[in-house]
Design a protein around this nucleic acid. Sequence first.
DNA 1: GCCAAATTGACAGCATGCTGATTATCAGTA
DNA 2: TACTGATAATCAGCATGCTGTCAATTTGGC
Lengths: 153, 153
Amino acid sequence: MKDIKEMPGHLVRRLQQIAVAVFHSEIEPTGFDITPVQYAALSTVKTNAGIDQVTLAGLIAYDRTTIAGVVDRLVQKGLLSREVSEKDRRARLLRITEAGDVALAKLTPAVLNAQKVMLSGLEEEEAAELLRLLHKATAALNDHSRAPLKTRS
Amino acid sequence: MKDIKEMPGHLVRRLQQIAVAVFHSEIEPTGFDITPVQYAALSTVKTNAGIDQVTLAGLIAYDRTTIAGVVDRLVQKGLLSREVSEKDRRARLLRITEAGDVALAKLTPAVLNAQKVMLSGLEEEEAAELLRLLHKATAALNDHSRAPLKTRS
DNA sequence: GCCAAATTGACAGCATGCTGATTATCAGTA
DNA sequence: TACTGATAATCAGCATGCTGTCAATTTGGC
């Protein structure tokens, strides 16, 4: 284990780096300028209309500070709307806009394809096994980051 | 595959996020203020004394722009030295300092332990299989990022 | 109803990571 | 030798991701 390149930390970082690059190359032809993080946020807001930022962050395991900037940019692009909650004036409720809906519909096929491409070096069963192992490893250590994943009960 | 949380991209990102958090919590007791990226650079320079920045970047698959900042900070902390090459005045040759050597020796056990912790949710054979799959998946797509891995022949 | 604790969001600050452009230098060729 | 293309490093700029702090607001206990 002396070599950096054999360490799990390095390999995970490397695959993540490749995943982002693949994402961008698959997205580029659609003409939208969106990042993996922004796509995750957009998609999650659509299926959870009226969600606040903290809950959104929990659903996709992002830090709440990070999500603020992401939401800012999505609002600026006109893909999300953000308004102060009536019931809790601390909270900002997020909703997808019509433009966001259109963008999401066009982006989703490209994103799904990117998932395939990033595992294209593996056999079908290997890819499934990788997913299972990633799932198991992350579930066991969910609380180790400032941004744990929170499933909506 | 409709759910973000089931996508390989999300899971890889999540494990990477956890890996960084585990790294920091394992490193913290050693009293050193160093990041995963900085550790990788430091360790690689030690075993490749007199390396230039581009070659270093290639060995650990970092973007050459990113590595510049990383090296800056390591030099500032006194862990690396950087001097203009005599043979090629464009290049900056990197070497580990004595302080860097000491730091590396103290950090390495903690880093190796972090690798174990980040996979502590998996059985022994599962961890090995995960490594194999990560290796295979990244090897197949090595050229997909701006910072491909370059083995020294 | 009042106050302490918790919660939401924001901000400053630092460290990756990337794109694209520029500068300095080197190497091969006409 | 002069020129062209390639290469090492740097810079500006943008987007994560994190820590730590703060203000506004809500909630729970009394």
